[in-house]
Design a protein around this nucleic acid. Structure first.
Lengths: 235, 235
DNA sequence: CGCGGCTTTGATGTTCATCAAGTAAAGTGG
DNA sequence: CCACTTTACTTGATGAACATCAAAGCCGCG
């Protein structure tokens, strides 16, 4: 017996995109369809570079799924991770609107799908749709503020405090679970908190000895949330 | 003999404001006059707080003259300076457009004049004037990017490198002179670069001993620019 | 002219980076 | 699929970098 399948009409998938309510609000169907026709959804495998510093800015990028890191490479070749962000937040090189090239690099920490919309289209929308513009400003500001506050949180802590903070960040903000797979290497945590990887590892070991976490490779389980929060606060 | 003085007609001073070309571009006279009627120019003396973290956001603030610092106060009461900015840049609490209260505090490092425009007026302009909105987005992005890059520059350096960087920052970006009056205490430099004030002072002393700077109180003269740049680069 | 805050310097100890060596894990090519 | 290579992780030892504490000097301001 042949089951009849509902084949949807060839129709703009953006109309039902869950991201639409987040940024691309206040757009009529016409605008959405214009975006839809020109947008590209690009998949990146874990580890792939989405764009490098210095690449020309052509698209406004939006993370649909996965996890990415935004980072700077110093003249000495060291990485400074600026932020790690998950879907429904801008993949925000904050300078997309005033520069010609990306200031920082962006790469996928997990398999990721990025929605790319030609930057001119976004600029046109800003010009002609005030509500869209205001909403975009809010989102951009929020993203920038997120980066700044992350930096402030990290820089006022010591090694143990920073490490605890990052573990809590992944647990609370990214995975919403006491147990999770770290999406980053120890070295990358070090690059995020501006410490050496050896000392990040050492701190992990201490947390393990003190019964605060269980760590098996990249699998982390926070076993004493209270103690970890105390370390994060006082460090 | 009585000298006749040219009294200008009562006329919107904003029309000739030099800031108009920077942010408030693409506005017709009517808009500018609306801003003009409702704006407030507030003077702050050196040391005064312009707004504290938690204060309600009522105005879009713009520095007309002087110098200010944007900073965070930690639960322990320590200050973390986010940026030090001079006129013609936004006095940018990046969250003016999406929050109800300021996240960070702002205070005057020198006598300053701040132009305050009611936030609703700016939002109205965004809604009805696309060119204004786009230009504002560019400015906001640039400001946010400035903060982020300052942080990255600082955090990849060691004590001496950070100190040298800050001196060069004041010399090149703020005062455009090899000799200048530091607008901040040693402690505030420490709060900017996340080091202890004692070690900032020690580093100043070393620079003095090595003939790199002359420092008399807050008067600084950079006597060996090259050496200072080398320290800033390698540190 | 005396008080309090900022600055300076030294002494001391802690924190952290670096180096080195070894182990586990994860790709890679035969 | 296994041996091999590479990369990530781990731990210890050492020294450098930095914070902290303390005491003294200076400067500005009432």
């Amino acid at each position: 017996m042949i089951v009849s399948v509902n084949i949807p009409k060839k129709r703009c998938s953006c109309l039902s995109c869950e991201l639409r309510n987040l940024v691309f609000t206040n757009l009529d169907e016409e605008d959405v369809e214009q975006i839809c026709e020109t947008k590209e959804e690009i998949s990146y495998s874990k580890g792939e570079i989405i764009h490098g510093a210095g690449d020309p800015i052509r698209a406004f990028k939006y993370l649909r799924s996965g996890l990415v890191k935004l980072y700077n490479v110093t003249p000495e070749g060291d990485e400074q991770i600026i932020t790690i962000t998950r879907p429904f937040e801008f993949v925000s090189n904050t300078n997309v609107f005033y520069g010609d090239t990306y200031r920082y690099s962006l790469s996928a920490l997990e398999d990721s799908v990025v929605c790319c919309i030609r930057i001119e289209i976004i600029k046109d929308l800003i010009l002609k749709n005030g509500k869209f513009a205001l909403n975009l400003i809010k989102s951009l500001s929020k993203t920038a503020e997120g980066i700044i506050s992350l930096t402030l949180e990290i820089r006022r802590r010591n090694l143990a405090g920073r490490t605890a903070f990052v573990l809590l960040y992944f647990s609370n903000e990214i995975y919403h679970s006491r147990i999770f797979e770290l999406p980053v290497s120890r070295k990358e945590i070090a690059d995020l908190i501006s410490m050496s990887s050896a000392n990040v590892i050492r701190t992990f070991s201490e947390f393990r000895r003190d019964g605060i976490i269980r760590a098996n490779g990249r699998t982390i389980e926070i076993t004493d949330m209270n103690k970890l929060e105390v370390i994060s606060r006082r460090g």
